[in-house]
């Protein structure tokens, strides 16, 4: 049976992907043979074995679930704060003029820079990583919302006005849906930065999670375990990105397709 063009592309993509991974694994294995120091660089087979053990014991998934849960919570808090604020900033120049200087002052400070202070404030626990991730995700979501609201086509607002919609209706029926694609792009960025911040904040500030596990096994010089958790961080980051893209496609089937 002949394959559809789409199916053929998918198979082709998978082959390219597999080939790339194979080249990477072989190169890794070769370098590990050459350095011959399993603490510095274990072979990919050792890492795979360690990953299998950690998966069987369940620790891999336990720690991943903790970190993932923290990220979801952080994104929820960041969205709940940044989306209404961004909407208000996008709609009102006056409000933006009041808020923007503070935002622009805080934005260049990376979430990680707050970790020492957050240790004083919150101590080690759940609050610190959630605070850091919320902080990190807040700015891209805020700026994406503002940009989305700002970019709403004037003629769509005018069309709604000529149909007699009140201001409230124009915000909920025109501005918000029109800004949604931009907001979803911002959310994707928010997920990426929040997930990047998870490791740094858990390395120091949490008694659990993937970042904590990386640090724990590093102290024990168990490099294959360290690398297993690092691989898990990459894998979950990849899956989350795919999840947000799927969300975009589901929520905005009308938007032009993006890469």
């Amino acid at each position: 049976m002949p394959m559809s063009p789409v199916a053929r592309t998918r198979v082709g993509d998978a082959l390219v992907y597999a080939r790339t991974m194979l080249v990477f694994a072989v190169a890794w294995w070769a370098v590990s043979r050459w350095t011959d120091n399993p603490i510095l660089l274990p072979s990919p087979l050792d890492v795979l074995a360690a990953m299998g053990d950690l998966a069987r014991e369940g620790e891999l998934f336990r720690q991943a679930a903790v970190s993932f849960g923290r990220m979801v919570l952080s994104l929820a808090i960041a969205s709940a704060l940044a989306i209404p604020l961004g909407l208000a900033m996008g709609l009102s120049k006056t409000f933006e003029a009041i808020v923007d200087p503070t935002v622009e002052l805080l934005r260049p400070i990376s979430g990680i820079a707050w970790i020492p202070l957050a240790l004083f404030l919150f101590g080690i626990g759940n609050v610190l990583p959630v605070f850091i991730m919320t902080y990190a995700a807040f700015f891209p979501i805020l700026l994406g919302t503002v940009a989305g609201v700002r970019a709403v086509d004037r003629s769509l607002v005018n069309a709604a006005r000529t149909m007699g919609l009140p201001t409230r209706g124009i915000v909920t029926r025109v501005v918000m849906p029109a800004a949604l694609p931009s907001l979803l792009v911002a959310l994707r960025l928010g997920v990426a930065v929040a997930w990047t911040a998870v490791v740094a904040s858990e390395l120091i500030g949490a008694p659990s999670g993937l970042g904590y596990a990386v640090e724990w096994y590093r102290e024990l010089l168990m490099t294959p375990q360290v690398m297993s958790f690092i691989a898990m961080i990459g894998l979950i980051g990849y899956i989350c990105d795919g999840g947000v893209r799927l969300l975009s496609r589901t929520l905005t089937p009308w938007a032009p397709k993006r890469a």
Binding site: D153, S155, L156, N158, A159, V174, P177, A178, L180, T252, W254, A255
Partner: peptide, 10 residues
């Protein structure tokens, strides 16, 4: 409107 001004999400 000349540019139709249709709501793309509708």
């Amino acid at each position: 409107f000349q540019d139709y001004a249709l709501f793309p999400w509708q």
